[in-house]
Design a protein around this nucleic acid. Structure first.
Lengths: 159, 159
DNA sequence: GGCAACCTGGACGTGTAATATCCAGGTTGT
DNA sequence: ACAACCTGGATATTACACGTCCAGGTTGCC
């Protein structure tokens, strides 16, 4: 799993703490976690394409949340950053070697191995979709109630 | 996810269909799916280290199942091939940039983002552990009841 | 208008892990 | 003794994640 997921979630939380009055430039978000600006920018663009963030072009531009944290699930962020493909990719090796030259239609049904793996990934996706960023933010603030204040202070008074 | 998982599961099923009277050499298993022998051998060795397979050295040696398919879960195979590490690795970026110089003990509790991701991976592992290779074999035979016979025929009469 | 601050998209380098091969050594059946 | 087989390490090769750079377009501000 690429580490872009961690970057993306933390950036979403930061944007939520800062409020959406004005957009935050990628360079500023990157500085907040000491991340490479250009590369973080790519992840943010992926989040925009996925409809999680909105971008504002031009001076004083940047990124903001496209909707409140309550309506963003971990699944949304993971899908945006990692892409829609399953982690397990069936190579259909059942058709090779001893499986070659099998009668027509033997392979109409999906491979049982693939089905089993897909079932597990579905459970993973369900667990991701069941958690909103708002819940994660709440958990973080339960550990450190002044996190939001700290973020706002670091980003310069209030905004 | 490495494709070694698919190789490993299919090989386990093949070993089950062939019975464990005599071990099957890696080269033979590889030929059954047109896989690179030396590389498949590495995956099989990982399965041996994990206690899923047993190996027999010397001439007429090879690999056999260490226990019946009913007692091998998908989780066993995935863990053997992929290793024990979580797919999501928390880089603790919360401590960098604006998080640097935080008061002592702020980071005693694990990152809320990491916790959420771990929860989803736990669901994945549970789903993997809930499925035995015997069930997968049964599903495969439901699609093609003569699979076992076909495998035995391809591997030479009976054995 | 002109300039600087931004995002967008693509091309390009880099580094690491998955993939794959090879070999030297040990074990076992014939 | 020899051939078949596993074991483990060293070594390519390849794919992809990671990261940089640049040319282009948009916007705010003087």
């Amino acid at each position: 799993m690429s580490e872009g997921v961690e970057w993306a979630v933390h950036c979403c939380l930061t944007l939520a703490w800062l409020g959406d009055e004005r957009p935050v430039p990628a360079a500023r978000l990157a500085a907040g976690y000491e991340l490479p600006t250009a590369y973080l920018n790519k992840q943010l663009q992926a989040l925009v394409r996925a409809g999680v963030l909105e971008s504002v072009a031009g001076a004083k531009g940047g990124f903001r949340l496209a909707r409140p944290l309550e309506k963003i699930t971990l699944m949304d962020v993971v899908a945006a950053v990692e892409g829609p493909e399953d982690a397990f990719q069936c190579q259909e090796i059942r058709r090779r070697g001893m499986g070659a030259g099998a009668p027509e239609g033997r392979y109409r049904a999906p491979c049982a191995v693939s089905t089993a793996m897909r079932r597990a990934e579905l459970a993973w996706r369900r667990a991701l979709a069941a958690q909103t960023l708002a819940e994660i933010q709440a958990a973080a603030e339960r550990q450190a109630p002044d996190l939001g204040r700290g973020v706002r202070r670091w980003y310069g008074q209030d905004g």
